[in-house]
């Protein structure tokens, strides 16, 4: 779920809602879908409130544009 975008997450949640709105629901699938929707919602809410790690990463990348992906020990 790490690279999931907000719009993808929203799309998936909307699809789940659409599925639930359609009257032909299988309870087992419903449980899975609701679980997934809950995860997505939690993911979005969490992501809205954490951007600093990503910023850090970007800054590091900018400082060392030629270095590899390995993290340097401080």
């Amino acid at each position: 779920m790490g690279k999931l975008s907000y719009s993808d997450a929203m799309k998936e949640i909307e699809e789940i809602l659409k599925y639930i709105e359609s009257q032909e629901i299988d309870v087992d699938i419903l449980v899975e879908k609701v679980k997934r929707a809950t995860e997505l919602i939690r993911f979005c809410k969490n992501k809205l409130r954490t951007a600093e790690e990503e910023l850090q990463k970007t800054l590091i990348e900018l400082e060392e544009p030629t270095s590899s992906d390995e993290e340097e020990p401080f």
Binding site: I16, L17, I20, L30, A37, I41, C44, K45
Partner: peptide, 23 residues
């Protein structure tokens, strides 16, 4: 936009839970 997004997600969540409840 962030606010609207979260609200929309929240609405979807409520919608999903409402549907499940009635279901």
């Amino acid at each position: 936009r962030a606010f609207d997004f979260e609200n929309k997600i929240e609405q979807l969540r409520q919608s999903i839970y409402h549907h499940i409840e009635s279901f």
